[in-house]
């Protein structure tokens, strides 16, 4: 199928992007890497009248460290994380998760921010952001300047986030992880590069796992941390945590996996992630 017709509008800065969006309203969509949006256009699942190309916005680019935070511009392509020394030093969890994200050709075009803005419940980056206590920085036509939303409040439901329809995600800020932090990113997918059936992104400051943050993806309408699971792990150990997970998690079935299967797989991944966190630093 071929995409329906649209106008293509190039924004040169955030202000222009917001102005274009205000002008074209609901009929317009931002396009970053296009790796999720263009398939939807080609399938005519979406027929926007206008696309506002944000790929040239200078405010959304770059990876840097500022005041103890790793700042990742929304337009950072997945592939750009590979071998980035700042990411390797301050948020190595992302590099553990990176090989699971799609295929080389898609990693070359798709953006970190696009993935967060889209908030696919089976995507890796939203879960990593949750595990890493990231803060999303957004802006929009109505807000005064920038809004900062912690990951715990950012993901609100199926493909639903704190981003309003006219908002832009500018960047993601991740507290730099102290040296020695333990990380685990694991997922199960039928084929290499597919979206996960279930996955887990976890981090802890040491092998005691008293403060582990364990984010699951593919188990709900959004990435999830379960306080009871983390508490059980800290206090009683992995079996109790697995039991807590089984009680707490209520995954939606997908085409090939029932809720029960996904619940079981989430438990398996939890145990494996815990093993990984406890293993070599």
């Amino acid at each position: 199928m071929k995409a329906a017709g649209f106008r293509f509008l190039r924004a040169r800065c955030v202000a222009e992007a917001l102005a274009l969006k205000a002008e074209h309203g609901e009929d317009a969509r931002f396009i970053a890497g296009g790796q999720s949006l263009v398939p939807a256009l080609n399938l005519r699942l979406l027929e926007p009248r206008a696309l506002i190309d944000i790929a040239g916005l200078p405010e959304l680019t770059g990876i840097r460290v500022e005041r103890g935070r790793l700042v990742i511009g929304a337009l950072t392509r997945h592939a750009a994380l590979t071998g980035d020394p700042l990411v390797a030093a301050h948020a190595p969890l992302l590099l553990e998760a990176l090989p699971y994200v799609a295929h080389a050709a898609i990693r070359n075009r798709g953006t970190f921010g696009g993935s967060i803005a889209l908030a696919d419940p089976a995507a890796e980056w939203p879960a990593c952001c949750l595990a890493l206590d990231a803060t999303m920085v957004l802006t929009g036509p109505h807000a005064e300047g920038e809004r900062r939303v912690p990951a715990t409040e950012f993901f609100r439901g199926l493909y639903a986030t704190a981003l309003g329809p006219d908002d832009l995600l500018l960047r993601v800020e991740i507290p730099c992880q102290p040296a020695g932090t333990r990380n685990a990113a694991l997922e199960l997918a039928r084929r290499h590069g597919d979206f996960a059936i279930v996955g887990v992104a976890a981090t802890a400051s040491d092998r005691e796992l008293k403060d582990a943050r364990i984010a699951f993806f593919g188990v709900a309408d959004r990435p999830m941390r379960f306080a009871e699971v983390e508490r059980a792990l800290a206090v009683e150990g992995v079996s109790a945590a697995a039991e807590a997970l089984a009680r707490q998690v209520d995954p939606p079935a997908d085409l090939y996996h029932s809720a029960a299967t996904k619940r079981h797989l989430a438990g398996v991944l939890l145990r494996r992630a815990v093993d990984r966190l406890r293993g070599a630093a």
Partner: peptide, 13 residues
């Protein structure tokens, strides 16, 4: 033979 069917055969799902 999906993971789901295999798990079911093993009594795990």
């Amino acid at each position: 033979f999906t993971p789901e069917r295999i798990l079911r055969a093993l009594g795990k799902s």
